[in-house]
């Protein structure tokens, strides 16, 4: 029957859309860890704030969507610069305390959002991309196509940036070995700030983009954070190709499992998969660890 083709296509399309979303969420997260060795538990909150700010600029200030998106992301980035001083800089090199600090920050941000926007689900309306495409019997909302396109563009831009620009190359050297980077004359602080900003921007952009497809609540950040965790465990903390691979895996896998089984099967499956992965590769995903 034609419906099995359309089912597969639907799963594939949903999976692609999910992968794109996850990739955007995970990229900023893994970047921060790869270069700054920070596990940013507030990453989800920044994602959520990106969505909220975009919502605010769209529905309250009545800006066109893309402008609202950009302004929202930049606002979060500006906030991020302030937060970096308070909750990140004091903990460079102190991994475990940094975790607690970012956890505290995440809670504060989430409940500040509750105070500002309430706990009721919000949505950006009128929806900026109402059209729905039909491909081989499956449907793809144009909003999700926008996400896929922009995510791909961002990933390519990031690839180009790290391969062909001075700052990008500096980033990679710092990720490998900060001491060597410093010896080569790279200003670590510049790299650190650039990395932090990029991470926050990516998170906020992801939030604003995904926000036009789903409902917004202050707790949406938690789910995004969990996804980021799963992806980086799968693909390796600090590895950008790993994040992309992990995102695709998670996206397609979740789409398949959700469509075929529903419920929370997908989430449970991922955790079991991670445990099995660790059992098979006992030295962890990045090989012999680094303490």
């Amino acid at each position: 029957m034609a419906s099995s083709l359309s089912l597969v296509t639907q799963i594939a399309i949903n999976g692609l859309a999910l992968s794109a979303e996850y990739a955007m969420i995970a990229l900023g997260f893994t970047l921060l860890f790869g270069i700054l060795r920070i596990v940013n538990f507030a990453h989800g909150s920044l994602f959520m704030l990106g969505a909220m700010f975009t919502y605010e600029f769209c529905t309250v200030f009545h800006l066109p969507y893309f402008e609202a998106l950009l302004l929202g992301a930049l606002s979060v980035a500006a906030l991020g610069l302030l937060l970096e001083r308070i909750a990140y800089r004091p903990f460079y090199g102190r991994e475990l305390q940094g975790i607690i600090a970012t956890l505290g920050l995440a809670i504060m941000l989430q409940y500040a959002a509750v105070i500002l926007w309430g706990q009721q689900p919000l949505s950006i309306s009128p929806t900026p991309f109402p059209a729905v495409l039909h491909i081989a019997g499956a449907s793809l909302p144009s909003g999700q196509l926008v996400i896929i396109v922009i995510a791909t563009f961002l990933l390519l831009a990031f690839y180009y940036f790290t391969r062909f620009t001075k700052l990008g190359l500096a980033l990679r050297v710092v990720a490998e070995d900060p001491e060597i980077a410093q010896a080569q004359g790279i200003h670590l602080n510049v790299v650190y700030v650039a990395t932090f900003l990029t991470s926050v921007l990516l998170a906020a952009l992801a939030g604003g983009l995904i926000g036009q497809q789903y409902t917004l609540t202050p707790s949406m950040g938690t789910d995004a954070l969990i996804k980021a965790f799963i992806i980086v465990i799968l693909g390796g903390l600090g590895s950008v190709p790993g994040s992309i691979l992990g995102s695709v895996l998670l996206g397609l896998g979740t789409s398949t499992l959700d469509t075929l089984f529903g419920g929370n099967i997908a989430e449970v499956t991922w955790f079991v998969a991670i445990i099995v992965l660790l059992a098979v590769r006992p030295s962890g995903l990045l090989g012999r660890s680094h303490g």
Partner: peptide, 8 residues
Amino acid sequence: ILYGAVLL
């Protein structure tokens, strides 16, 4: 918020 602040 207080809770998060206390942690931080």
